[in-house]
């Protein structure tokens, strides 16, 4: 049972038109090494489900999105991701815009294998007008309340970034907020994790650390060793958000600057070449944790 594979091998197993869940939240613990591998591949027409950050921006800039299922796209330290903004304003992809909590409920419904979960969230808003596929349901109990039936968001694959993993698919996520990675894992047919540190089999968890495991190995199809694999997003406690890099990324909106960004940061296949391009291990390890 060896689930180790390269980022490019993960992407080679994905198909055009798939629905992918991308873990993390905005500028935190995004599986960026896996996203960059998508940009190196011909994979296209993707439906992406994400609490969006530069993962969405990169895929939008490269024209890989057919549809985005999202509550937001944010770079946190910069007000807006310009790659997302430009593509969204050009109508380059379809949207299923949701409240952040509805997105969670859709993943939860998929993970529970039920068709929907009821909620009040979305009532009274244009979320319902722009998503005519989302229906209302009347409570079968005496209250008779009308609720939103948030449909299950089933994923063909989930891409997640964890702190440590072993070749069996055991993981721990040591950053302070696990976000909704567990729900993405359960909502997906297949789960691929990238990890900052690959550990010998069976050494990822101790009794004290076991609670930092977001999902069990039986959900994991593939493990990718990707030191600094979330960069330029944070994977604390290892490294913080690379604000300088995000500014360079956000400025790369002309064809020339985008080609240069891509050649420098996306094209290198090996983690070592990416780390060198991004300023080296010492620089990345010294990126401070985010302060807001």
């Amino acid at each position: 049972m060896n689930k180790l594979m390269s980022a490019d091998a993960v992407v080679a197993g994905l198909r055009d038109g798939m629905t992918l869940g991308i873990g993390g939240w905005a500028t935190r613990r995004k599986p960026m090494a896996l996203v960059r591998a998508i940009l190196r591949s011909p994979l296209r027409d993707l439906t992406v489900v994400s609490y969006g950050g530069p993962d969405v921006g990169l895929l939008a800039a490269a024209g890989r999105l057919r549809r985005l299922v999202f509550g937001f796209v944010s770079l946190d330290v910069l007000p807006i991701d310009p790659h997302y903004r430009n593509a969204r304003q050009a109508g380059a992809f379809a949207t299923m815009e949701l409240d952040e909590g509805m997105l969670q409920l859709g993943l939860r419904a998929a993970s529970m294998r039920v068709p929907f979960l009821p909620t009040r969230v979305g009532l009274g808003t244009d979320i319902l007008r722009h998503n005519p596929g989302i229906r209302l349901v009347r409570s079968p109990y005496d209250d008779g309340e009308m609720l939103v039936a948030m449909p299950a968001l089933r994923l063909d694959a989930a891409l997640l970034h964890v702190t440590e993993a072993d070749a069996l698919g055991n993981t721990v996520t040591l950053s302070p907020d696990p976000f909704f990675d567990e729900l993405m894992a359960r909502a997906a047919e297949r789960v691929y994790v990238s990890c900052d540190r690959l550990m010998p089999a069976g050494t990822v968890c101790t009794p004290e650390r076991a609670r930092f495991q977001c999902f069990e190995r039986s959900l994991v199809s593939g493990v990718v060793e990707a030191p600094f694999g979330a960069h330029p997003t944070a994977s604390t406690p290892g490294y913080g958000i690379d604000v300088e890099h995000l500014r360079e990324y956000a400025a790369a909106t002309t064809p020339e600057l985008w080609a240069a960004y891509r050649a420098r940061y996306v094209d290198p296949e090996s983690p070592a070449a990416y780390i060198a391009a991004a300023g080296g291990t010492e620089r990345l390890a010294a990126l401070p944790p985010p302060v807001f």
Binding site: F72, D99, V121, T125
Partner: peptide, 21 residues
């Protein structure tokens, strides 16, 4: 226009759920 907005901003974020809760 929602399909091709003049300015795309953040997204609805948590506003729908916050407002009703």
């Amino acid at each position: 226009d929602y399909a091709r907005p003049k300015v795309a901003i953040l997204g609805a974020r948590g506003y729908p759920g916050n407002s009703i809760s």
